[in-house]
């Protein structure tokens, strides 16, 4: 079952990359569609980030006593300033470790 889903979603993903390179594709996407697609990365990735930071293993929302929250805030600041993936990961993970191992 998992193989079937994987292959079908893989084909769908390939189709989305190929569609405009195909011989039958229109020369240009409809403007409204293209504008909306511009928001896909922000919307999709935020929808993954927020639960990963704020939802605990027991499915509860954790706003207090959650070392991931300050680590995320530091990471956002570093991302905005440095625009570097490596710096952002280092700052975020570093803050998380500092808070976890210092027991803060």
């Amino acid at each position: 079952m998992i193989w079937t889903i994987m292959i079908v979603t893989g084909l769908l993903t390939f189709a989305m990359r190929f569609v405009m390179l195909s011989a039958v594709a229109p020369r240009k996407l409809p403007a409204a569609f293209e504008e909306a697609l511009g928001f896909v990365p922000i919307a999709v990735l935020t929808a993954i980030i927020v639960p990963a930071v704020l939802v605990g293993k027991d499915e509860s929302i954790m706003l207090l006593d959650n070392a991931r929250l300050p680590a995320t805030i530091i990471a956002i600041i570093v991302a905005l300033v440095s625009r570097s993936v490596v710096m952002t990961i280092s700052a975020g993970l570093g803050t998380l470790w500092l808070l976890t191992f210092l027991g803060a």
């Binding site: 922000i42 929808a47 980030i49 990471a75 625009r83």
Partner: peptide, 26 residues
Amino acid sequence: IPLTFIAIVAPTIRKYPDLLACVTSG
């Protein structure tokens, strides 16, 4: 994993529609 996505998303939020998309989705 979320840190990688933060590094990708945060710098792309430039205008108010971007921020609104982010806040709504979150």
